[in-house]
Design a binder for these strands. Structure first.
Lengths: 333, 333
DNA sequence: CTGTTAGCGCGTTCAC
DNA sequence: GTGAACGCGCTAACAG
């Protein structure tokens, strides 16, 4: 790979002239400029961002650390993050923490070595297993979706509790009285808040929330399938279910189909996340849609502002989600 | 952020001693080693991979360029790629080309500036709009899934034609005679090959493939939905459909449900890709499963071998896919 | 308008 | 067992 020095020699000018031609950082006579540009092209010279980074102390690279990038919800978020970052001149390094706080720490360490300019963190693991984050003091962090207990960093999230509330209200307004909630593991904050919204709506409507109103399982389609299977086997089935994630809800719809329970005729289902698959589920899934695009952009804009030295006080932005009503909900029979 | 020099001063040793302590690259007396390690910890020193890269001409970073990372198929592939790369000591920079060859070129240019050690390329755009790839001469490339016409690089793929053939055979063996194919745009090579397998199986079985046997639309759930809607409105409906992607098939199942066409009783459906959503579709989707995990690992291993200077002749590996039979296929009524 | 030069943080050769 | 010094490719301050 050609270097600036080689280009300079070949063009018969100094290194700095080449540099200035490339960066438009001072006036260069047109003749020289053309000649240099020609040589650059001819030698297929590509400037080294590595050397540039060493000099400027900026890599124009943002780390993105998520629990699992193949989860459709995160995948969609990442796509918008990449989009926003790229348009603003940044690349992203993607890491999966696989739900384990220790792997999260290991990834972060590597990202710090690579001298990322900033980090978008969608935290992994339960709160109580969080270790210290290497390098938090030196690199701006924006937390997405979930706040880590001891971490002083900007936070962009959607109002989870409100979403759970809206979803449950929707079911109540349709006339449902016997409503269950299928949720992921209780040690994940987002899940907990969504369930909180469910409980609030229920109590507000004077509907009882018993321990068996809430069924827990893994935060996956398989988990949703299992939870629904248990739920539907009960002697007294609910007429509606609020599920704390679309992935689980999709698994649930599948289980309902297998059990010959018709949705929404016999059972209404509301999901959460509005992943792409929800729209084409059978029936199309009513769900709570967090503003993924806006969250991603806001997170990146916030982060880049910090990277540029923005000293605004810590921001904690909670965006509103919208209930998307499709065909999986209807009045009870 | 602390530097090696600062650590050295604080520890009262030379820079090179610190370096050797960190890299275990020569014997250091135990007392000094411990002291240095202590200071490193105390100062929260983290070595700079940027400086290291400049020196060694290696970034331990791999570029991953895909059409759209939020597509579940690519998302799953990326997850395995990240996994493999991380375990072998590499990070990935993720870029979306959004199906446009020119954006692909732009991304690649940036990746070259960042001096990625290698590139995993899932090519975007139609063949005829491909421009030259900046820096192909200097950086090893492994193509995944799809070969670019003029590009001499290793290729890892799954046998598309064979998959289309197996899917169609499955339908034929179930007793179907009137089989349609719903495919993505014909200018995408993968689609074309899958359709090729469909045609071969049909002809081999003496079944006519007429122009109207093949319905084309966008490579999305919406496209699949639209294609199925048109297909099901025909006076003489097929009894089975081979769909060239799960995303389209899922949209198709949704359309079938809306048209009150029962799957598989009235219509068998086979998809392609085995994305996570296929397993929990309604009914669970029979589909062709490319070995995503193996493809990702093979691609990364090949790439890293090249990065380390491997001079083996160009490898073109085509892995077998497996037909996963679920509940969306059955004999015709 | 152009050239010279001093680092950026680190690995490595050579000398002690 | 340890240190001094050079250079990776580039930017920017300074000099002309």
């Amino acid at each position: 790979m050609a270097t600036m020095k080689q280009v300079a020699e070949r063009a018969g000018v100094s290194i700095s002239t080449v540099s200035h031609v490339i960066n438009n950082t001072r006036v260069v006579s047109d003749g020289v400029r053309q000649r240099v540009l020609g040589i650059i092209d001819e030698m297929r010279y590509i400037p080294s961002a590595v050397a540039r980074s060493l000099k400027n102390d900026k890599t124009h690279t943002i780390g993105v650390l998520v629990p699992n990038s193949s989860n459709p919800y995160f995948a969609e978020l990442i796509r918008w993050i990449e989009d926003a970052a790229f348009q603003l001149g940044y690349n992203i390094i993607l890491c999966n923490a696989h739900g384990a706080a220790h792997k999260q720490t290991a990834c972060l360490r590597l990202l710090m070595e690579k001298r990322i300019d900033g980090l978008v963190l969608v935290a992994s693991g339960a709160d109580d297993e969080q270790g210290p984050l290497p390098g938090h003091e030196t690199v701006p962090i924006v937390q997405l979706e979930r706040a880590l207990p001891g971490l002083d960093a900007d936070l962009v999230q959607a109002r989870q509790e409100e979403g759970g509330y809206a979803a449950t209200r929707h079911l109540i307004e349709l006339g449902h009285r016997h409503i269950a909630c299928v949720s992921g593991p209780a040690d994940l904050p987002r899940t907990r808040e969504r369930v909180g919204g469910f409980v609030r709506a229920m109590e507000e409507a004077g509907l009882a929330v018993t321990p068996e109103s809430i069924v827990q399982d893994e935060f996956t389609s398989a988990g949703g399938h299992a939870a629904f299977t248990r739920l539907l086997a009960r002697p007294r089935r609910p007429t509606a279910v609020f599920v704390t994630s679309d992935l689980m809800a999709l698994g649930g719809l599948c289980a309902a189909g297998a059990a010959a329970v018709r949705v929404p005729a016999q059972l209404s289902v509301v999901g959460y996340d509005d992943i792409a698959g929800a729209r084409y589920a059978l029936p199309p899934l009513t769900t709570v849609a967090p503003p993924k695009h806006d969250m991603a952009w806001l997170a990146i804009e916030l982060l880049i502002d910090r990277i540029r030295g923005g000293q605004a006080p810590l921001r904690n932005t909670a965006l509103a989600s919208t209930l998307v009503v499709r065909a999986s909900t209807a009045p009870p029979q």
